[in-house]
Amino acid sequence: SYYEILDVPRSASADDIKKAYRRKALQWHPDKNPDNKEFAEKKFKEVAEAYEVLSDKHKREIYDR
């Protein structure tokens, strides 16, 4: 789930989600993982997609249904 990707509970606040996104984006940024760039790019995209949905109140409500 998007919550698992960002490592936050379903009850996470918008601020918690933003902090988790920043932490995970740094962790999986391809430039930070030169030895495993392809895998890092995949993870980085997953993190971005999760944040896009969970950071938008309307999209998150739909996702949580």
Score class of each variant (00 low, 15 high):
Leu26Ser: 14
Lys45Phe: 09
Lys57Met: 10
Lys32Ala: 15
Asp64Ala: 02
Ala50Asp: 01
Tyr63Lys: 02
Tyr63Asn: 02
Leu26Lys: 12
Lys19Thr: 11
Lys42Asn: 09
Trp28Thr: 03
His58Ser: 13
Asp31Ala: 08
Ser11Trp: 15
Glu4Ile: 10
Lys43Arg: 12
Asp15Leu: 13
Arg60Gly: 02
Ser13Asn: 11
Asp15Phe: 10
Lys59Glu: 06
Ile62Gln: 13
Arg10Pro: 11
Glu61Thr: 06
Ile5Ser: 05
Lys59Ser: 06
Ser1Pro: 04
Arg65Gly: 13
Lys59Trp: 05
Tyr21Thr: 02
Glu38Asp: 11
Lys18Val: 14
Ala25Trp: 15
Glu41Thr: 13
Glu4Pro: 01
Glu52Pro: 00
Lys42Gly: 09
Lys43Val: 08
Lys24Pro: 00
Glu52Gln: 09
Ser1Glu: 06
Ser1Ile: 05
Lys24Gly: 04
Asp15Ser: 15
Lys24Gln: 09
Ile17Gly: 00
Lys18Asn: 14
Lys57Arg: 11
Asn33Arg: 05
Glu4Arg: 10
Asn36Val: 06
Ile17Phe: 04
Lys37Gly: 07
Glu38Pro: 09
Lys37His: 09
Phe44Ala: 09
Tyr2Phe: 09
Lys59Ile: 04
Lys18Gln: 15
Ala20Glu: 02
Val47Tyr: 04
Lys57Trp: 08
Ala20Met: 04
Lys57Asp: 15
Tyr51Met: 05
Asp16Pro: 01
Phe39Asp: 09
Lys59Arg: 11
His58Phe: 11
Val53Lys: 03
Glu52Lys: 06
Ala40Val: 05
Glu49Val: 14
Pro9Val: 07
Ala48Cys: 15
Asn36Asp: 08
Lys42Val: 10
Arg22Ile: 15
Val8Met: 04
Lys19Phe: 06
Arg23Trp: 10
Pro30His: 06
Ser1Arg: 09
Glu46Lys: 06
Leu6Glu: 00
Ala48Val: 15
Gln27Phe: 12
Val47Met: 05
Lys32Asn: 15
Asp31Pro: 04
Tyr51Gln: 01
Arg23Val: 15
Ser11Val: 06
Gln27Met: 08
Ser13His: 06
Pro30Ile: 06
Asn36Met: 10
Ser13Arg: 05
Ile62Val: 12
Leu6Phe: 02
Tyr51Ser: 01
Ser55Lys: 09
Ala50Tyr: 00
Lys43Ala: 07
Lys45Ala: 12
Val8Ala: 05
Pro9Lys: 08
Ile5Ala: 07
Ala14Pro: 09
Tyr2His: 06
Leu6Asp: 00
Phe44Val: 04
Lys57Glu: 15
Asp35Gln: 11
Asn36His: 09
Asp7Cys: 12
Leu26Ile: 13
Lys42Ala: 11
Asp15Gly: 12
Lys45Glu: 07
Arg22Trp: 14
Tyr51Ile: 02
Lys43Thr: 06
Trp28Gly: 02
Glu46Asp: 09
Ile62Lys: 09
Arg10Ile: 11
Asn36Pro: 04
Ile5Arg: 05
Asp7Ser: 12
Trp28Lys: 01
Ala25Thr: 12
Tyr21Glu: 02
Arg10Gln: 12
Leu6His: 00
Gln27Cys: 07
Lys43Tyr: 10
Lys18Arg: 14
Ala40His: 05
Tyr2Ser: 02
Tyr2Gly: 01
Ser13Ala: 06
His58Ala: 15
Ala48Phe: 14
Ala48Pro: 01
Asp56His: 05
Leu26His: 09
Lys42Leu: 12
Ala20His: 03
Val8Ile: 13
Lys59Asn: 05
Lys32Asp: 06
His58Trp: 10
Asn36Ile: 09
Arg60Val: 02
Lys24His: 06
Asp35Val: 08
Ser55Cys: 07
Arg22Lys: 14
Val53Pro: 00
Trp28Met: 04
Ala20Thr: 02
Glu61Asp: 11
Lys24Thr: 04
Leu26Gln: 14
Ala14Glu: 15
Ala14Cys: 10
Leu6Gln: 01
His29Ser: 13
Lys45Leu: 10
Leu54Tyr: 00
Lys19His: 13
Ser11Ala: 11
Pro30Val: 06
Lys59Leu: 12
Lys45Asp: 06
Tyr63Thr: 02
Lys43Cys: 09
Val53Leu: 03
Leu54Glu: 01
Ser1Asn: 13
Arg23Lys: 14
Arg23Tyr: 13
His29Arg: 12
Gln27Val: 07
Ser1Phe: 08
His29Asp: 14
Ala14Met: 14
Ala20Lys: 02
Lys19Asn: 12
Asp56Tyr: 02
Ala48His: 12
Glu52Thr: 08
Phe39Gln: 09
Asp15Ala: 13
Ser55Ala: 08
Ala20Arg: 01
Leu6Thr: 00
Ala48Met: 15
Lys57Tyr: 09
Val8His: 00
His29Ile: 06
Tyr51Pro: 00
Val47His: 01
Ala25Gln: 14
Glu49Cys: 08
Glu41Tyr: 09
Ser11Phe: 12
Ser55Phe: 05
Gln27His: 09
Leu26Arg: 09
Glu4Ser: 11
Ser13Tyr: 04
Arg60Trp: 02
Glu41Ile: 11
Tyr2Thr: 01
Val47Gln: 02
Asp15Arg: 07
Asp15Tyr: 12
Pro9Gln: 10
Lys24Ser: 05
Ala12Val: 04
Glu61His: 07
Tyr3Ile: 00
Phe39Val: 13
Tyr21Asn: 02
Lys43Leu: 07
Gln27Asp: 07
Ile17His: 00
Asp31Phe: 06
Tyr63Asp: 03
Ala25Leu: 14
Lys18Glu: 15
Ile5Gln: 04
Lys37Ser: 10
Tyr63Pro: 02
Lys32Cys: 14
Glu61Asn: 06
Ser11Asp: 15
Asp16Asn: 07
Glu41Asn: 10
Glu46Gln: 11
Phe39Met: 13
Ala48Asn: 13
Glu4Leu: 10
Tyr51His: 04
Glu61Ile: 09
Ala40Ser: 06
Lys37Cys: 06
Val8Gln: 03
Val47Cys: 12
Val53Thr: 12
Asp64Gln: 02
Ala40Tyr: 07
Glu46Gly: 04
Arg65Asp: 05
Ser1Cys: 10
Ser11Gln: 12
Asp15Met: 14
Lys19Ser: 09
Phe44Cys: 07
Asp16Lys: 06
Leu54Lys: 00
Ala12His: 01
Lys37Ile: 11
Ala48Asp: 06
Ala12Phe: 03
Ala48Gln: 15
Ser1Thr: 11
Lys37Ala: 10
Glu61Ser: 07
Tyr63Trp: 03
Lys57Thr: 14
Ala25Met: 12
Ile17Tyr: 01
Ile17Leu: 07
Leu26Val: 07
Lys57Ala: 15
Ala25Pro: 00
Asp56Phe: 02
Lys43Trp: 07
Ala12Trp: 01
Ser13Met: 05
Glu52Cys: 11
Arg65Gln: 15
Lys18Asp: 15
Val53Ile: 11
Arg22Met: 15
Lys32Trp: 08
Arg23Ala: 14
Asp16Thr: 09
Ile5Trp: 09
Glu4Ala: 12
Asp15Lys: 11
Lys37Val: 13
Val53Asn: 05
Asp64Met: 01
Ser13Thr: 13
Ala40Cys: 08
Asn33Val: 05
Asn33Gly: 03
Ile17Glu: 00
Glu4Phe: 10
Asp64Ser: 03
Ile62Asn: 11
Phe39Glu: 13
Arg23Ser: 12
Pro30Phe: 04
Glu38Ser: 11
Ile5Pro: 01
Ala40Ile: 05
Glu4Met: 10
Arg60His: 03
Trp28Glu: 02
Lys42His: 08
Leu54Met: 03
Ser55Gly: 15
Val8Lys: 02
Arg60Asn: 02
Lys57Ile: 12
Glu49Ser: 07
Tyr2Pro: 04
Glu52Ser: 13
Lys45Pro: 01
Glu61Leu: 08
Arg10Trp: 11
Trp28Asp: 01
Lys37Phe: 15
Ala50Leu: 01
Val53Trp: 05
Ala25Ile: 13
Phe39Leu: 14
Lys45Ser: 08
Leu26Pro: 03
Asp31Tyr: 07
Glu38His: 11
Pro34Ser: 11
Ala12Cys: 09
Ala50Ser: 03
Pro30Thr: 06
Arg60Pro: 01
Tyr21Ser: 02
Lys19Arg: 15
Glu4Cys: 11
Pro34Met: 13
Trp28Ala: 03
Lys45Ile: 07
Lys57Leu: 10
Asp35Trp: 12
His29Val: 05
Arg65Cys: 12
Ser11Lys: 09
Lys59Ala: 13
Asn36Ala: 12
Glu46Ile: 07
Asn33Gln: 05
Ile17Trp: 00
Ala20Asp: 02
Tyr3Leu: 01
Ile17Cys: 02
Asp35Met: 12
Lys59Thr: 06
Pro9Ser: 08
Asp56Ala: 02
Pro34Lys: 13
Glu46Pro: 02
Arg60Ala: 02
Lys42Pro: 03
Phe44Glu: 03
Asp64Glu: 04
His29Tyr: 06
Lys18Ser: 12
Ser55Met: 05
Asp64Trp: 01
Asp56Trp: 02
Leu26Met: 11
Lys42Cys: 12
Val53Tyr: 04
Ala48Arg: 13
His29Pro: 02
Tyr3Asp: 01
Val47Pro: 00
Val8Gly: 02
Ala40Arg: 05
Pro34Phe: 10
Glu52Arg: 10
Lys24Cys: 08
Glu52Leu: 12
Pro9Trp: 05
Asp15Thr: 10
Leu6Ser: 00
Glu41Asp: 10
Ser55Arg: 11
Ser13Trp: 03
Tyr2Asp: 00
Asp31Leu: 13
Glu52Ile: 11
Arg65Met: 15
Phe39Lys: 08
Asp7Tyr: 03
Asp56Val: 04
Pro30Asp: 05
Ile5Asp: 03
Lys45Met: 11
Glu38Cys: 08
Lys45Asn: 14
Tyr2Trp: 09
Lys32Pro: 03
Asp64Leu: 04
Ala40Thr: 05
